[in-house]
Nucleic acid binder design. Structure first.
Lengths: 253, 253
DNA sequence: CGCCTATTTGATCTGATTCAAACAATGTGG
DNA sequence: CCACATTGTTTGAATCAGATCAAATAGGCG
């Protein structure tokens, strides 16, 4: 039940994340614990990897909050996903050599950089781990689709409610939520860039959700006051997160 | 240079597609040619796999045109991607057991269904092929991101120009375009569902593109009259398609 | 305290939707 | 081969969700 105590926090959070999407055997965990890395602390609002780069390592979020994004020619930003501790947002760089988007911190973060060779070595020694990594990138795609559905076809406040549900569930899945409360170190303008909305409209829609007593959002702490209500308001169904590991039960509020 | 003549058309189109995103060695092609399948002809507008299903086979598009989509609670549809011959739109079902979205034909199509075990066997015998499959699903994700950027942050006619560029390039990559002309068996209403727009607005934006002399679109045939202009109008940069195989040169008009 | 950044409010504008109806194309059966 | 039905495209007018512009508060923090 309890984690082996000698694990690095870096390995620990990664294992926690992967275990949330798929069961892991003991030897698979041991295998993951052989991943090499160097850790770096990064302030908020810093690019970590940029469109056009050819990274030779993957970035594991250990603490903090990170996002992937891209700019249009006119400089308008679209954020594609939020990444919380345990995530490896650029795992894809293993197979797609040139970055087609950028990665930046939204909050002060601790990031562990794992050389591609080390990831490859682990996957080679332990094919099941390779499968879980692949699975993780596929879930990534599922999240993209869900966001696309929201941006394309849902109203502003539904979109917002949905993304709040998603963040809480994912935070719970890796043990980073306290009941119905978790960190959400994201400004309203960043939320807008994630949901294809203007800052002003995000603000007004948030007020609507607050007005209905669904949430409170003070500073960077999100508290869901009425989970069922928020779920309904956001048309949220966690199926697309494919939490088939141990995180499944932990995640569902 | 020339294809071995004895290949099934199903294996042939798949190899053509994979070769467009990554070089394939001879023995990898031979390995792919051992994939089992059963082929089915399907009329237009038919669901092939549905949200909630647990498929035991993957669907290879051999001829025709297919899309992935999902509906909101109010029944509004968002199309996530178009799939043309050579694509395996539900390759992800190998690792994500429950479908979180649906797959349907947009035109009369010939589909080859490949049992998961057969795919797994091939990937086991030939790890390089597994890598290419993974790569393919990652490119899938890149396309989602690009569409998301469009839906969230680009104007209607830019979005449309972009998707037209994408389809032409991908058609060319598998040898299904004739110069700057290719099939596009998609109604304006379906284009709208793909781009988060209403049919009416798609129609007006298409007229704008036609008015500028960028395209003609008659029946289900798209002709790009001014590639450079369309590329610019759509802010199109093919990097995100990661065509690093032989398709690279073929694809770029 | 004072600075900087984030949130909030108000007023106005607009890209895109919706509703409704005409028109064109395509296909079907008699 | 034509009449009719069906589906897709086009046009017009009214409306709206959300954007933009501008300015006022409110936090956080050195």
């Amino acid at each position: 039940m309890s984690e082996p105590i000698q694990l690095h926090p870096e390995h620990n959070i990664l294992i926690r994340k992967l275990r949330s999407i798929s069961p892991l055997a003991e030897d698979e965990k041991r295998c993951l614990a052989t991943l090499q890395f160097t850790t770096r602390s990064v302030a908020a609002d810093q690019d970590v990897v940029r469109e056009g780069d050819r990274p030779s390592e993957c970035c594991l979020v250990v603490e903090g909050f990170v996002c992937r994004y891209k700019l249009t020619d006119e400089g308008r930003r679209q954020i594609f996903s939020f990444h919380l501790p345990g995530d490896i947002p650029d795992l894809q760089s293993l197979h797609l050599k040139v970055m087609d988007h950028s990665l930046m911190t939204l909050a002060p973060s601790k990031l562990a950089f794992i050389p591609h060779e080390s990831v490859a070595a682990v996957m080679h020694r332990c094919p099941r781990v390779a499968d879980v990594f692949w699975r993780d990138t596929l879930i990534d795609g599922a999240v993209f689709r869900e966001w696309m559905l929201g941006i394309g076809r849902r109203t502003a406040s539904t979109r917002i409610a949905h993304v709040l549900c998603e963040v809480l569930v994912r935070m719970r899945a890796v043990g980073l939520a306290d009941g119905h409360r978790c960190e959400l170190p994201v400004t309203q303008s960043e939320l807008g860039d994630a949901l294809g909305l203007s800052t002003v409209h995000v603000n007004r829609s948030l007020q609507e959700l607050r007005g209905k007593g669904l949430i409170t959002l003070r500073g960077s702490v999100l508290t869901v006051e009425d989970w069922e209500g928020l779920e309904k308001a956001g048309e949220f169904d966690p199926l697309y997160l494919h939490l088939d590991g141990e995180g499944a039960r932990a995640a569902c509020p």
